[in-house]
């Protein structure tokens, strides 16, 4: 879980500075940031509950 957090932190920092270098407006930078954080939260949640719940089981339930 720590490693997932670390990887996403590196990605967030890289993307933020890369977009700043390309002079992207602040709104777009925050959109990218919020989506990356959503992925981070999803990753952490899925990893934390991987023994009780996974994508296969979710599809079993939905379809």
């Amino acid at each position: 879980m720590v490693w997932i957090g670390l990887i996403f932190t590196v990605i967030i920092i890289f993307n933020w500075f890369e977009q700043r270098k390309q002079q992207a407006d602040l709104k777009k930078r925050f959109i990218v940031l919020s989506i990356t954080i959503t992925f981070l939260i999803l990753s952490e949640l899925l990893y934390a509950f991987k023994d009780q719940f996974n994508v296969f089981q979710m599809l079993e339930g939905v379809l």
Partner: peptide, 23 residues
């Protein structure tokens, strides 16, 4: 519109998903 800021989060998420996709 630019796909590049999403390339790294999407790849990281997919990699993590591949580990926990199935048991």
């Amino acid at each position: 519109m630019d796909h590049r800021p999403f390339a790294l989060p999407v790849t990281a998420f997919t990699t993590m998903l591949s580990i926990i996709l199935v048991r």
